[in-house]
């Protein structure tokens, strides 16, 4: 059986990759993908803790299910807003989205 540490290393690497991607990517869609990576890292965490540490309950699985559904809703809204931006300025590059600053 794989020890719990291995799962946690994977999920932590996913979280950090997501944070890194969120700060370095210059395209709104790529930023969205990075955030999805972070959310999936948490889902792994919940499932692993439930399966290996507290196998009697279902709390972690349910939390993971709800968080998947909610992140889908967030993605839908985010993509709709991105389409609106694209209609306005014909680009979704972060460098161009700079009308308001300071």
């Amino acid at each position: 059986m794989i020890s719990i540490i291995c799962y946690l290393i994977v999920s932590t690497i996913m979280l950090c990759a997501g944070i890194y991607g969120f700060f370095t990517r210059h395209n709104l869609l790529a930023m969205l993908i990075s955030v999805e990576l972070m959310l999936n890292a948490t889902d792994i965490n919940f499932a692993v803790f439930n399966r290996l540490l507290y196998p009697n309950g279902q709390e972690g699985y349910f939390f993971a299910l709800f968080s998947i559904a909610i992140s889908a809703a967030e993605t839908a809204i985010a993509i709709a807003i991105m389409i609106n931006i694209y209609r306005n300025i014909r680009s979704i590059q972060v460098d161009k989205i700079n009308k308001m600053k300071w």
Partner: peptide, 26 residues
């Protein structure tokens, strides 16, 4: 539209951080 994009991306980022914290508490 720019405000909406900035809001939804920061909201998603922050809720991902919050969720990771909750998973550690669990």
């Amino acid at each position: 539209a720019e405000a909406g994009a900035k809001y939804i991306l920061t909201a998603m980022f922050s809720s991902a951080l919050l969720l990771f914290g909750l998973s550690l508490i669990y």
